[in-house]
Simulated scan of single mutants.
Amino acid sequence: MGESWLLQLELDGALNEQGMVCDFGIVKKLTREWMDKTIDHALLVPTRMDNLKVEQAVGQTRVEWVYPDGQAFNCLSPSKAIALIDVEEITPESMAEWCRAQLIELFPQEVKGLNLRFVAEQIDGDFYHYSHGLQQHDGNCQRIAHGHRSRIEIFLNGERDQKLEHEWASRWSDIYIGTSAHRKESAEGMHTYEYRAPQGEFSLTLPAQYCYDIDTESTVEQIARHLAARIKQMKPFDEVLVRAYEGVGKGAVSQV
């Protein structure tokens, strides 16, 4: 599943002729471009993980992995949508070390050291933890297996309902939110999603128990709208407002 991490950087080195180790503008530009190109909105695969098989062809990468219960995960994507990480497990610490070793090479020679940390967004209360792909998106959100760890707020008649928040956060814990039109025939107990987007062909197969389909693209706006409509069905005489977030500090509101 996806995460929402904040990136913190510290640079160590000699001062240049401007009295700086490195201009903040350069730091932000280099780091953002590298993160966007390498790991953001990509499927991060720890290549030392057990029961993993990776196949690479021209421009395409297939990842196969077996869950402990014997069920299979299979993803075929353009290679730039999958990041192969030489670690046993994806954690903030392992990713920070892997990224640091590569980022340091991009900075000017005055930069002699780099300390990098990923910090999870602080969320007080419940959150939903999901992955998805947006076929119609022009950017990297079109990638079929990227995700988020996000806040969720539900209000009935202007009052926050934390019980409902907990119910939906539990239902959407480590879930793939798919689009019904993208789902193809697959083996019993499995769901397969396929689509073609500007970056290429995408396919994902995983156990049905980890999936939740909606009738639209799974944008945060449509997720908020879907959730508000579902709650309204259960609470027809109440005014329902849903705030669904995506990543840090951004999201959508739906009211019915």
Rank of each mutant, 00 (worst) to 15 (best):
D215E: 10
Q18W: 07
V256G: 10
G249F: 07
R100N: 04
A42Q: 08
W65I: 05
W34Q: 14
R230D: 14
S79I: 03
E55A: 09
A57C: 08
S150L: 01
G178L: 05
E10N: 13
D23A: 15
Q8S: 12
I90D: 00
Q233G: 08
H148Q: 11
S203A: 13
N115G: 15
A252L: 02
A252S: 12
N16H: 09
N51L: 02
R117P: 05
L44W: 03
E221F: 06
G251Y: 00
R243S: 14
H182G: 05
W65R: 12
A57D: 14
E10F: 03
A57Q: 11
A197L: 05
Q60K: 09
Q255H: 10
L206V: 02
E105Y: 12
P236Q: 15
Q255G: 12
V119C: 05
E239T: 11
V45Q: 03
L103M: 07
V111N: 00
E64T: 15
E153K: 14
V87H: 02
H166Y: 15
H148W: 07
K232S: 09
N51M: 06
E217T: 05
T219D: 08
R160P: 02
L114Q: 06
T61F: 01
Y193L: 03
G178Q: 07
Q56G: 06
C99S: 15
H132T: 04
R32F: 08
I175M: 13
Q255W: 11
V111P: 02
F107W: 04
T192H: 13
A42D: 06
E121N: 14
L204T: 04
Q135N: 13
G249Y: 07
V66S: 11
A229P: 03
R160C: 01
G19I: 03
L206W: 03
Q109Y: 11
I177K: 04
G133I: 02
L116Q: 04
E3H: 13
F24Y: 15
G249N: 13
M35H: 10
V240L: 00
V248H: 13
I154C: 05
L76V: 05
F237E: 12
V240P: 00
D174H: 13
S186E: 11
I154L: 05
L116E: 05
K53N: 09
K29L: 08
H191I: 06
I152N: 07
I85M: 02
Q135H: 12
G147C: 02
G19K: 09
M1Y: 04
V111E: 00
M234I: 13
W34G: 01
A145I: 05
L116S: 06
K29S: 08
G2L: 05
P108R: 07
A42T: 06
N140P: 02
R143I: 03
A14V: 10
Q162A: 14
Q135K: 14
M49G: 12
C75H: 00
E10V: 14
F202T: 01
A169Y: 02
Y176K: 11
F237S: 07
G158C: 10
S254Q: 10
